[in-house]
Simulated assay, not measured.
Amino acid sequence: MRRKAMFTVGRKKKGRRPFQHVVLRRLRELKKIVPDAEDADVDMLLRRTADYICVLELKVTVLRRLSTIYGM
């Protein structure tokens, strides 16, 4: 299964959105996912996203260790 490219190089095909619109749409989606990021600019959004990823990884680690302790 091939992955779709995030952007294309060369001629624009009909029906494709410009790369900037795709990036802006993904940033809006990211603002909905990351806590306290609704009013953040791009730099702050990316920092908060990185922090949120670290928090989620820590939660997964804790839950995995708890599951091994309690045998679930």
Rank of each mutant, 00 (worst) to 15 (best):
G15D: 01
G15T: 00
A50S: 11
T49F: 12
E57N: 07
L46Y: 06
K4G: 06
G71D: 07
R2F: 09
D51P: 02
R26E: 13
V22W: 01
K32G: 13
P18T: 06
T49N: 08
E57I: 00
K31S: 00
M72E: 15
R11K: 13
V55H: 07
V9G: 03
R17F: 05
R64L: 12
D39Q: 10
R11G: 05
A40Q: 08
H21N: 12
M44T: 13
T8D: 08
E38T: 05
D41L: 03
R16W: 08
D39A: 13
M1E: 13
L45R: 02
K32C: 11
K31Y: 03
V34K: 06
V9W: 07
P18H: 09
F7M: 09
H21G: 14
D43W: 11
R25P: 01
T61W: 13
R26Y: 05
D43E: 15
G10M: 02
V55E: 14
V22Q: 10
M72T: 15
R11E: 14
R2G: 06
Y52K: 04
V9A: 07
V23G: 00
V34W: 02
A40R: 04
K13H: 09
E38D: 14
M72S: 12
R64N: 15
K14W: 04
D43N: 14
V9R: 05
A50Y: 08
R3D: 12
I53E: 09
V34S: 05
I53T: 04
M6C: 09
M44G: 01
T68M: 08
R25Q: 14
F19I: 13
D41C: 03
Y52Q: 07
R3G: 04
K31I: 02
S67W: 05
I69C: 04
T8R: 11
R65G: 02
D51Y: 10
Y52W: 12
E38M: 09
E29I: 04
L30T: 06
R64W: 03
L27I: 07
R64C: 12
Y52C: 10
D36L: 07
R25A: 15
K12N: 05
L58K: 15
K13G: 05
V60M: 08
P18Q: 09
V23K: 09
R65M: 10
T68V: 12
I69Q: 06
K32P: 00
R16D: 15
R25W: 08
L30F: 01
V62T: 06
K32Q: 15
K13P: 03
H21M: 12
T49W: 08
